[in-house]
Design a protein around this nucleic acid. Sequence first.
RNA 1: GCCCGGGUGGUGAAAUGGUAUACACGUACGCUUGAGGUGCGUAUGCCGCAAGGUGUGGAGGUUCAAGUCCUCUCCCGGGCACCA
Length: 873
Amino acid sequence: MKKYLPSNFESHWIKIWESEKVYKTTHSKNKEKKYILDMFPYPSGAGLHVGHPRGYTATDILSRYYRLNGYNVLHPMGWDAFGLPAENAAIKAKTNPKKIVPENIENFKRQMKMLGFSYDWDREFSTTDTTYFKWTQWLFIQFFKMGLLYKKNTPINYCSSCKTGLAEEEVLPDGSHERCGKPIVKKELPQWIFRITKYADELLQSLEGLEWPRGILEMQRNWIGKKEGVNIDYMIKGHKDVVTCFTTRPETNFGATFVVVAPEHEIVQKILDGKEYRLQIGEETVSKIREYVAQSQSKKTREREMENKVKTGVNTNLTVVNKLNNKEIPLYISDFVLSGFGTGAVVGVPAHDTRDYDFALSFNLPVVSVVVGNAATELPTKNTSSVYEGEGIMVNSEFLNGLSTQEAKKQIISYLVEKGWGESKTSYHLRDWIFSRQRYWGEPIPIIFCKTCHKNKVSYFETIKNSDDSDKISDFRQEVKDDLYGYFPLSEKELPLDLPDVNNYEPLESGKSPLAGMPTFVNTVCPHCKGAAERETDTMPNWAGSCWYFLYFARNEEEGAKKQADLDMKSYWEQSLRRDFDKFMPVDWYMGGAEHAVLHLLYARFFMHAMYDINLVSHQEPFFRLRNVGMILAEDNRKMSKSLGNVINPDDVVREYGADALRLYEMFMAPFSQEITWSTRTLQGTYRFLKRIYNLSVAYENYENEVDYTIGEYSMLSNKLAQTIQKVAGDIVEIKFNTAVASMMEFLNLWEEVAKKNKFALSKDDLSSFLRILSPFAPFMTEEIWRNVLKNKVSIHSGDWPIVESSKLQKQEIVLPIQINGKMRSTINVTVPSTQEEIQIKALTDPVVKKHIGERKIIKTIYVPSKIINFIV
RNA sequence: GCCCGGGUGGUGAAAUGGUAUACACGUACGCUUGAGGUGCGUAUGCCGCAAGGUGUGGAGGUUCAAGUCCUCUCCCGGGCACCA
């Protein structure tokens, strides 16, 4: 008898599937589509580790399942290959990333094929391909044209180890860089900035329709951080200046006892520079303020935030007027107020805000309570040593007294607005997206800067004015116009703007990208005045390529190629690409790690929303359904890493146990989204499972139909299969692969038992059905039996999902549990359907039941059909 | 501090309010094998010789019936955090 040796046939089938084009994307008009996508990997030099295939196997199972069910399935794979790791590896190896990346990709691809993933490799591409990134650059230009980008000198998060600026999202809570773990400093550099905040509300709203894990949705909501409140104006006494404070609790305003501004607040400079101010407060105070501002600027952001409770600050000796009660309250400067949130100024209500309270304690400021707890028993207390931040009833607040906080809020807002002292305002935690990186290995930003045109205030937007532009876009342009005099995008014909070969990839000490050191790259001609001009030398962040790759997978190059040659980029997009996108977008199933909860998922959503607004795509949301794959830890319960030497390589596992066993194991171990610890032992269990099936199946080479499959245990086995088929189908689309595998194991256990009496206990048809439901999980072994034992000509993966006869799903006899007073006492075998009377009579003849009831009387009987019977005595 | 997850055998874990521990691993004993890091069989939550009792982090509650629903509480993991 043949033995189960996966190495005997796995590599053979990889070649056959490839030559037969079994996994080619179809788009028949009479079929529905499913777009099933993995978060494409960064092709590192280390190759795949055993954690990668967990997510890839899941999407592979889904893809195969939907193919068998007759869908047009798009299941592509590509490479997110720009970014620091490749660049750093190249620097180390003294070579160009352009050389390293293709080698890494080859290795990744080999491993993925080895694992039997059914990607349509015709659609593969890398973000570093010029054919792809010319479009990324083209999109940048479209966004530039719509006024969604601006360039500005900004204090940014800068990693001095990686020598590049970073986005807010790339900074970890401890103030380190999420990639390299080194500390981040603030540095002022000219940066391209994406106005993602313009989409904050939209990005928040449209989370509603997405089938994403709740936690991820919550994290996106928190990151966008929408807060509704009121901006209230405070006039500085004796001066014309106004300090505007943002508050979400305007109803507590009668309890305001001070106002604090951030050291970066514009009023601070005014006070320091203004003669009248200096005269009023005296030079001593001026130097105190100056000292405090300098001090807090030298602190790293994180230091400022970590200090927490101990509040520092400085009194300006100025007062502002609370117009509500005409009280004068002091104006302070403190770095506990963040310049980036709200207005950078806060009104202090120490009785109802812990931070304000702490500040009041430090500076001996009065505390005025204006809210008391909701319960009528809680009367206003003089004891203000504790802060009350909850809802309640208003006191000490003139016309608000006696109202609930909610009602008071409504009234005070309309009062403030009516008087012109304040306005409703929404604030967001989301910051604009810093899009410049001072590194080599990224898409060059396709912009030219002309000093002459800058001086002459030539705006590119004036040259492209069009009456068709929407109000939204006109507004966008107007808002960035002043920051962009002299900046022009490249023309389509100049795309792609490729990366030149350079000798040194190290970023320059000036904080500029290595490209800045290449005059041949930098110097160019101004598209407007034809004078000398310079190219932008910063590159895009590594997120750029992943912001729209999912669209590009949907293109059909064979059909589009001819058109592409004849059309300009815009027309090609409109007439060819967009139609292809519409066939498959949005993504139906998106799989990847939860670590991308905000970064990639937010950026990609933003790109789509923006593209939708300039009519480049038909959907706003790229990923309809998202599922997270749990991490695989090494056997020592730590993250797998090269430096710890605990990495399990899939090549080794496949050599010993085969790809099918690895796939099955990773699906079986635990619920899909859960973190698991690698266990070779458990993998041996799934290997045994496959081996047992193989051993039972090979006998069918000499199959003879000598069994009546409609009777006894043979029909029971067939019914069990029908139930298993249904269970597996349901589990796959619910991403419950572990129980899907378990149910197939259950079936095998029964099959083996019956097969002891007859090796053909399972009909040939049923065997083929079982192989077909197993085939998404174990594509190699099922194909081997399908073709070499059952002698089928066409691949099992091109077939159909088995149809279940509903008659086989209905059980005829079940084991019914009997409870007495709610406690399980016995079981009886009953045929279904049966009436309650029949069951009751049978149940009461059961000796165990008789014994437990004894002399007692039955008061009540609860019977749940086919579930349980419960006697209350 | 706030917001999400999650606590079930020796282990990974199952369970539309209806037999708690399916499936797998491990362990023990037995058989098979020249040999086993093979294959097969039996047992395996805990206490108990048994009858039986008890058991899903803890305490209450709803229900004929609770791992599942409600209230309070403890612990672990993740995210956010001087966000006004």
